[in-house]
Design a protein around this nucleic acid. Structure first.
Length: 660
RNA sequence: GCCGGCUUAGCUCAGCUGGUAGAGCAGCGGUUUUGUAAACCGAAGGUCACGGGUUCGAUUCCUGUAGCCGGCACCA
């Protein structure tokens, strides 16, 4: 007998080998009907599979989030079945559930076309209607390899070959079709339902390696019911309207053109936004004890050879040759420059930690396929800094940095999506012992700061591990923005030293860190997160003064002068247009405040303020309006300083000075 | 870079099976002085991404290139 502990805490005994379905049926027939999967001690199992033992037992129905993952996984199997029926000779590889849906990678000579998607979708619905029973089978490893080879499924055979000997080989059958799969699955294809849609075609490399064959991936989205599917599609549609490329055009922020691939032409408004963010970041760095520098844009290749960048990234650097035969490289990053500044003159342990910042313009020859709006560029600016410190200062510096980063993201209305720790790559400098220490220290700092850290094996920089701080764009793609990298290698390669207390020469360690990562990407993420409706302090144009008739022109100019004198970014619209037209136009351009002035306001010395997204108005005297708007428009860090928080900001500054 | 798709006026988009292109908005010239999300009239605007081919004739068919879009790979 086995003991099953139900979610309500009750315990019941069942015969060995009882299936989840039988247990569900013993409780209620209706439950048996709704049951899709079993959760036993946290592990999901097929409904009809004999329970391997007792434990905490739960029956999952369609409504459970875990069941949704299985619905998506099964949708990928149904898709694979449909594809193999429609396109004989196509090999299957892998097809997992992913966020919001699923994909399956196929190997086939002829690529799929968009028209094929509709056909496949139709066939999938037929397979759902066939209600094929999904059955789990345990196979012998060698027999499985031989079988899949025989039927021409080379990729599947390869997968099994690479599985550890101890792994149980399971094959799931549905109707005539079968797939090697760990499971679990739904009881039959009807449970997949029809709330799915195939969304896109893509190429994808076998096992994610570009040296391997390219497979054809079909993506789909799948949901528990039609309403959820509709809601998802609607969400995507809405999110696409927030695309920074669209808003950038609508708000006249910037443009890109062929002659400058991956490089931005910032228009006046976009550049105002950029400068606002930069000024904010600069204040935050000043208060946190950073010093700002500027290193050359182009330097001799020998420096990049010394740092190791030439070897690994030489192909991706913009270079130029002088008439005298020197080869110069446009800087792809700022570290070597900063080390030169550190190395100039002698540094003492008293100078550490030295936090050296630069808004560094970097150029990288990124592969054409990587370019993406202003998120991934060939010319971008890092809010870069290198903290030169002793080993025993690493943890405190890391914690201080993560605190700053979180505060900046909060001020900019951004939510940190995830923190990842990129571990040692195959090609790297430095001994394993050094990497052990570096990885452990970074992880400890992140955990101390309260972050949940996900590991990325093999993805670290060649000189050290990195913490990556990811943000999300409108449609949910994540972008690495912040980073914190611990580097023992470059100080060694570029020969950085300081004089220790005992007079000996010592190597500092370097923390490479950025909060925005790329100013451009950060602004892109902000555009999408705010959908262009920036809070007042960030809005490129904060107030538009719009007249109703030309009688108010002179007064409107006075309003502009007063508001500008209060430090606001103000535009005026004196055009001979109806107020409705002006309101509409400036609202579409996302002006946060429209100050309407007509004859009445001119006579009374008032302004009627209208906020973006609301149709009410507030009537204020010009003086009141200027004061209120100026207060609202002060950046969050300035506002905190002004709100009587003097002691806090002073103490931070003092601390930084002491530390620096 | 790889796979697939797209590229027509400043922007958003029409244009059936080949017969040298059309709308709305913006811009320009007028009229209109207007009270909170589109006043009216008019003129103008295009080597249909670029190159080659097939054809009597190509925006349309074929082909090459570029850019962009969606993925993949890459991301110091």
């Amino acid at each position: 007998m086995i003991d099953l502990i139900f979610p309500d805490g009750s315990v019941r005994q069942f015969e060995e080998g009882v299936s989840g379905r039988e247990v569900a049926g013993s409780i209620a027939k209706s439950l048996e009907k709704r049951a899709l999967l079993i959760k036993l001690d946290g592990a999901l199992l097929d409904l009809d599979r004999p329970l391997p033992g007792g434990g905490k037992f739960e029956i999952l129905t369609r409504e459970s989030p875990e069941a949704l993952d299985t619905i998506r996984h099964d949708a990928s199997h149904v898709m694979a079945e449909a594809v193999q029926e429609l396109f004989p000779g196509t090999q299957v590889t892998i097809g997992p559930a992913i966020e919001d849906g699923f994909y399956y990678d196929f190997a086939r000579e002829t690529p799929f076309s968009l028209d094929d998607l509709a056909k496949i979708e139709q066939r999938m619905k037929e397979i759902v209607d066939r209600d094929e029973k999904i059955v789990r089978e345990v196979w012998d490893r060698d027999a499985a390899i031989a079988h899949f080879k025989e039927i021409g499924e080379a990729y599947k055979a390869e997968i099994i070959t690479d599985l550890p000997d101890t792994e149980t080989i399971t094959v799931y059958r549905q109707g005539q079709w079968k797939d090697l799969c760990l499971g679990p699955h739904l009881p039959s294809t009807k449970h997949v339902g029809k709330a799915f849609k195939l969304t896109k075609l893509a190429g994808a490399y076998w096992r994610g390696d570009h040296r391997n064959a390219q497979l054809q991936r079909i993506y789909g989205t799948a949901w528990a019911n039609e309403a959820d599917l509709e809601a998802h599609l609607k969400r995507i549609e809405e999110a696409e309207k927030r695309d920074h490329r669209k808003i950038g055009r609508a708000m006249d922020l910037f443009h890109l053109q062929e002659e400058g691939k991956g490089m931005i032409f910032w228009h006046p408004k976009g550049w105002t936004l950029y400068r606002t963010v930069e000024a904010y970041m600069r204040r935050r760095l000043d208060v946190d004890g950073y010093v700002e520098v500027k290193a050359p844009q182009i330097m001799d290749r020998v420096l990049w050879e010394r740092s190791g960048h030439w070897e690994k990234f030489g192909q991706n650097m913009f270079t130029c040759e002088t008439t005298e035969g020197e080869v110069l490289a446009v800087k792809p990053m700022n570290c070597p420059g900063h080390v030169q500044i550190f190395n100039y003159g002698q540094k003492s342990y008293r100078d550490l930690p030295l936090r050296m910042a630069e808004f560094g313009a970097c150029h990288r020859y990124e592969p054409s396929g990587a370019l993406h709006g202003i998120m991934r560029l060939r010319a971008f600016t890092q809010d870069d800094a290198h903290i030169f410190c002793r080993e025993d200062q690493i943890e405190a510096e890391s914690t201080q940095f993560i605190r700053l980063l979180e505060s900046v993201y909060a001020d900019c209305g951004l939510e940190l999506h995830s923190v990842k720790l990129a571990l040692r790559p195959e090609l790297r400098f430095g001994t394993d012992e050094v990497w052990d220490v570096a990885e452990a220290k970074l992880e400890r700092a992140a955990i101390a700061a309260g972050c949940t850290v996900e590991h990325l094996p093999g993805e670290g920089a060649f000189y050290g591990p990195k913490l990556e701080f990811h943000l999300r764009d409108a449609i949910g793609r994540t972008w690495q923005c912040g980073t914190l990298q611990l580097d023992y290698v470059l100080p060694e390669r570029l020969d950085a030293e300081y004089v220790a207390e005992d007079g000996s020469k010592q190597r500092p360690v370097m923390l490479h860190r950025a909060i925005c990562g790329s100013m451009e990407r950060f602004i892109g993420v902000m555009i999408e997160n705010f959908a262009g409706s920036f809070p007042l302090w960030l809005a490129p144009t904060q107030v538009v003064v719009a007249t109703i008739t030309s009688d108010a022109d002179a007064y409107a100019q006075e309003v502009v002068r007063t508001l500008r004198a209060a430090g606001l970014r103000v535009e005026v619209d004196l055009r001979n247009e109806k107020i409705n037209y002006k309101i509409r136009e400036h609202s579409l351009a996302k002006a946060p405040v429209i100050a309407v002035v007509g004859r009445r306001e001119a006579e009374e010395g008032n302004v009627a303020l209208r906020r973006l997204g609301s149709d009410g108005q507030t009537m204020l005297s010009l003086a009141q309006a200027a004061k209120a708007l100026a207060t609202e428009a002060s950046p969050p860090d300035v506002a905190r300083g002004a709100a009587g928080a003097e002691p806090a900001s002073v103490s931070v500054a003092t601390e930084a000075m002491e530390a620096g």
